[in-house]
Design a protein around this nucleic acid. Structure first.
Lengths: 340, 340
DNA sequence: ACTTATCCGTTAAGCGCTTAATTACCCTAC
DNA sequence: GTAGGGTAATTAAGCGCTTAACGGATAAGT
C-alpha cells in the first residue's frame, strides 16, 4: 500500500510460509492448494495490496491482456466525429472489470496504421486487434492473417473467415429511401463518404438497388470526405446543378450540418424546400436548428460486441459474424414533403 | 516475417554465432561489441524482423513503455465533445515514433478512475499518467503521490510540486469580457461547467474579477454540467428571468449550441438580441448558423506538451509547469452590439 | 500389509531481455 | 618477460510469474 514498493508473489509466499508456486496456484484458483491455505494466501495478498505484474505474467503465459485499436483518420476529422468516442465508450464497457486494457493509436496514414499493428504484434503488446473502416482489399486483412493476430472487423462480413460485428446498413438505407419516397420525394441524392470504404460501397449499393426498385431514375450518389468543407462544396454543386434534388442523405452528421448551412446560404428552407437526413445520430443532429432527422446506429453496442467477440476469438473460439440490433431512422425537423 | 513465429534475441544470437548478451549490447547501442559485430547483428535482426518483447523488457528494466490516460466523463457527454479526441490526437503526435504507447480508459465515476490508476500502477503497466479535469482536493493527486507514479496535470498549476501543462484561461476570459463590453454589453452571464472542476473555478474567478474591474454589477455565473439539456434549462431560466442578459459566455461548445436553440425558441435573434460565445472552438461552432464566436485553445498542443513533459519526468526531470500558447477569441456571427 | 490413488505442496525450468561480473585475448610499457 | 590496461566477448543472475514434474503423506482398496 505504501508508495514505491509493489509486493510480489514471493513476498506473499514468505508471509504465508509457502512456496511461490503454491501462491500462484492459490491466486489463480487452480487445484494444488488446500482451501485453508488458499484463503490464507489470498488474505495476505490483498492485505499487501498485491496486483500481478502484467509484464511477468505476459512473459510467462504469453498473454498481453490488452487489445489494440488504431484509428486512421486525419486529426482534422477525428475531433469532429462523435463516432469514435462512442465506440470507445462501448469498448470500455465490455472491457470493464476484466483484466484487459485498451491500447489506442491515432494515425494519419495507412502505412503508419499497418506499422502500429505490426509493432504491437512484435512487442507482444496486444492479444488481438479491432479493425475499423475496412477498405476494398484492405492490407490489414492480409497482415493480421500473416501474423496470425486475432482480429475482429467492425463492419460488414466481406472477408469470409474474419470475425466481424456489423449493423444492417442496407436495411437502414432502404428504410430512409422509402420514408422519403413516402413523403413524396423523387429526386434524392446520397452524399457519401470516400468510395474506398467498404461501408460506403455497401450503402451505395443498397441505395442504388432501392432507388431502382422504387423507380427513382434521378437518384444518385456523390462523394465527399466526411469533412464539412468537402460536404459544403459537393452540396452546393448538387443543389445548383441541373435538376436539383429535393432530399439529401448524408454519410455522417457533420456533412449534414454543413449542408444545412449551404441550404441557408442558397436561400433554401429546410425542410420545406429541401429535406436532409444524417447518418449516425448525435448531439449535433439534435442541437442544430432545424434538428436533423438521422439514422441512429447502435455504436456503443458495436464496440462492446466487438470486444466480446475478440476476447472469444483470442480464447480460441471460431470466427463468428455477429449482427447488432438494427439502425433506426429518427425523424426530426429536417424532413418534410417536397415543395409542390 | 512469417506468421506466428516471433524471433527473439537468442535466434539472432544463434544466427550470428554470438551470445545473447552480445546481441543485447549491440541492439541497444551500448559498448561491449565491436563495430563489425554490431553491424552484423543488426543486419540479422532486421532481416529476421525482430522487435523487442515489451513484456520481457519491462520485466527486466522495469519500464512499461506506456503512459495512461483515464477520462472520467459519462458516456453521454464524452461522445459529444471534440475536446478529448483532439487531445488524444495531440498526445499521439508526441508519442509517434517513440517506443511509448497510450493506454486509454473511459470511466463513469471517480472511484473507477482511481481504481484504474491504481491497477495500472500495480500491474506496472504504465510509467506515468496524465491527469485531466482536476477538481478541488483531487484524490488523484494524493494517489499518484502515494504511489510515486509520475503524473502530469492538464490544467492550472494548483498543486505546487506537480508538473502541469496549462493554458491562460484567465486571459481569455478577460479578453472575451472586454470584447463584449466594447460591443456595448453590460449584462453578461457566464454559463459554466460544474463548480467542482478547478478550471471552472479559475475561469469564474477571472470572470468575476474582470467584471468588477469593468464595472458590470449584473455579471454573474450560473452552472450546468456541459450537457445540452442542462444548458438549455439554465439558459431558458436566465433569459426569462428578471433583467435578462444581452450576452452569454459558455464553458463548452455543446452548451452554446444548445442555447442557440433556446434563443430561437424564445424568439430571440442571435446576435441581434443576444450574443453568444462558446469555449473551445470546434466544427460544431463553425457549422451552426449563426456560426458561433468562440475561444480557441491549443488543445492538441496541450496534449503534446503534456506527453513530452511526462516523458521527461519519468526520466527524472524536475516537475516543470509549462504554459501553452494563449487562447484566442475567434469572432463569428453570434456576437454583435446589444439591442438599443 | 502392501500396493494404488489422492491430495497438497515444493522444485525448477522457462518466458525474453538486461547487465554486473568475469574471462580471454591482444597491446603497450617498464 | 611480465605486470598493467584496454577491448570484445561470454556467463549467469535476476526481473515476477506460470506450470510441468516431482515427492511426501494420508486414505482407500484388496
Amino acid at each position: 500500500m505504501v508508495g514505491g514498493k509493489r509486493p510480489t508473489i514471493s513476498d506473499i509466499a514468505k508471509a504465508a510460509g509457502v512456496s511461490t508456486g503454491a501462491v500462484s496456484y492459490a491466486l489463480n484458483n487452480r487445484p494444488g492448494v488446500s482451501e485453508p491455505t488458499r484463503r490464507r494466501i489470498m488474505d495476505i495478498a490483498d492485505r499487501l495490496g498485491w496486483v500481478p505484474s502484467s509484464a511477468a505474467r505476459s512473459l510467462s503465459d504469453g498473454r498481453a491482456n490488452a487489445i489494440g485499436l488504431v484509428v486512421d483518420r486525419p486529426a482534422r476529422v477525428i475531433g469532429v466525429e462523435p463516432y469514435f468516442m462512442q465506440l470507445i465508450s462501448g469498448i470500455q464497457g465490455a472491457l470493464a472489470g476484466g483484466p484487459t486494457s485498451l491500447l489506442l493509436q491515432v494515425t494519419d496514414n495507412s502505412a503508419a496504421e499497418l506499422a502500429a499493428y505490426r509493432r504491437w504484434w512484435g512487442e507482444r503488446r496486444v492479444d488481438g486487434v479491432l479493425l475499423v473502416d475496412l477498405v476494398q482489399n484492405d492490407p490489414r486483412v492480409e497482415l493480421v492473417r500473416e501474423l496470425r493476430l486475432p482480429a475482429v472487423v467492425l463492419g460488414e462480413p466481406v472477408v469470409p473467415d474474419l470475425p466481424c460485428v456489423w449493423t444492417d446498413d442496407e436495411l437502414a438505407v432502404t428504410e430512409v429511401l422509402e420514408y422519403l419516397v413516402a413523403l413524396g420525394h423523387r429526386r434524392i441524392v446520397r452524399v457519401a463518404g470516400p468510395t474506398k470504404f467498404v461501408h460506403t460501397q455497401t450503402r451505395s449499393r443498397a441505395f442504388t438497388t432501392a432507388a431502382a426498385r422504387l423507380n427513382l431514375p434521378d437518384a444518385r450518389v456523390v462523394h465527399a470526405d466526411y469533412s464539412d468543407e468537402a460536404a459544403a462544396r459537393v452540396t452546393r454543386r448538387v443543389l445548383t446543378g441541373g435538376t436539383a434534388p429535393t432530399a439529401l442523405v448524408f454519410d455522417n452528421d457533420v456533412m449534414a450540418v454543413s449542408a444545412l448551412g449551404v441550404a441557408h446560404e442558397l436561400g433554401l428552407a429546410v425542410p420545406d424546400q429541401l429535406s436532409l437526413v444524417a447518418w449516425d445520430d448525435s448531439a449535433l443532429c439534435r442541437l442544430v436548428r432545424p434538428a436533423l432527422s438521422a439514422v441512429r446506429r447502435p455504436i456503443a453496442e458495436r464496440g462492446a460486441a466487438a470486444v466480446r467477440l475478440l476476447l472469444d476469438v483470442i480464447n480460441g473460439a471460431p470466427p463468428e459474424q455477429v449482427k447488432t440490433s438494427d439502425p433506426e431512422l429518427v425523424p426530426r425537423s429536417s424532413t418534410a414533403h417536397p415543395p409542390a
